[in-house]
Design a protein around this nucleic acid. Structure first.
Lengths: 195, 195
DNA sequence: AGATTATCTGAACGTGCGTTCAGATCAAGC
DNA sequence: GCTTGATCTGAACGCACGTTCAGATAATCT
């Protein structure tokens, strides 16, 4: 027995990535085996290598894809002239995007150290580009006098850590809706750097 | 050859935990082998089992010890009547404590999922006790009217995520000193929940 | 219908894992 | 100085890992 009925590369490829994402988010890259991923897809381990050259690349592709999506979505955001509005918008975007993709986000922040140096550098560069957008907003606001920041870079990292932390506890069926959480976080972020 | 000259349980035991902490913080629990830990200590893998029943317990002991230290140190903090002062003090304490023990903190927040259910529950309970202290401060401040929080639990988690994020980038030889970082973060935390 | 190609299986490879244990070595107590 | 107990080695255990590959099967093309 071999090829399954109705099987296609177009179907199995995404399913491999989806299974990898789910498992790695739950148990961590190092703790997940290729055989577990294969089992989740309903295939033997060897078949995975039709879709990825190796395990490391599978992880890298997940993170790379996520960062590309993040930056693409960010690029679509308008850029309000008012820094306060821009910050609120960024915060809301960040929360919304992260709540929609908890697994991808979790991996992007937790599995950096499991990337080989080259791959790490590539992802890190993308992450920097994202953070730069927030940092620019903060610097603009500071120049205009509506934000007070002893250190723009530090404030950037502090806000991102706070906003990203939402993925650690948010549950769709929990006490608060995504929209509520979004509003509260955006407000806290704004106040944290305001005059 | 066997027993090393001048070797003692009192010395090797702590060295095992220290090596485990260093390696796990850097590479992750699942990615670190008992043989690597043993090599770091300068001993064969089998000797580790004089000091821990198994790898899982080694991880749990690290986390448990860290949480105990955290709660003990917290208990020594005075409890100012003014919620604003209490919050600032908590924030400064949190930053200071975390900057002093980057490895232990990193493990405590990243390796939770590698704990077996029982151990996880135990650590989680300790973590909850810690968070409760902050939540109490916030609720008190909200009742007195100096804090504005749509949701105390959410604010607690947001602040802790922000404060803990400091371990992700802080370097002792970096641009900012620990004391500066402490002051800035405490200020941001206070503003984030103030009226 | 027959040939071709994409897809997958099942077994195998070398390696490293956590853990155990008999035996070797050293330090301490008598 | 001999014995005893604490400490460690070195080899071994079964198992799971990532990866490869020849062969089997199903879909597609002619």
């Amino acid at each position: 027995m071999a090829r399954k009925t109705g099987s296609h590369s177009d179907i199995t490829g995404p399913r491999v990535r989806a299974a990898a994402q789910r498992l790695i988010a739950r148990h961590g890259y190092a703790a997940v085996s290729m055989r577990q991923i294969a089992a989740e897809v309903g295939v033997q381990a060897g078949a995975l290598y039709l879709y990825t050259p190796d395990k490391q690349t599978l992880l890298y592709d997940l993170m790379r894809l996520h960062m590309d999506e993040l930056l693409s979505a960010l690029a679509l955001l308008p850029e309000p002239a008012d820094p306060r509005e821009a910050l609120q918008q960024f915060a809301r975007f960040h929360i919304r995007f992260h709540l929609d993709r908890p697994e991808a986000v979790f991996i992007a922040y937790m599995e950096l150290r499991n990337l080989e140096p080259e791959n790490f550098a590539a992802i890190e560069a993308l992450r920097r580009r994202y953070e730069d957008r927030l940092e620019t907003i903060l610097r603009l606001g500071a120049a205009e006098g509506c934000f007070v920041l002893p250190d723009a870079k530090l404030a950037t990292l502090a806000l991102i850590a706070m906003l990203t932390g939402v993925t650690g506890w948010f549950r769709p069926d929990g006490r608060l809706s995504g929209a509520e959480v979004e509003a509260i976080y955006a407000d806290m972020a704004l106040k944290a750097v305001s005059a």
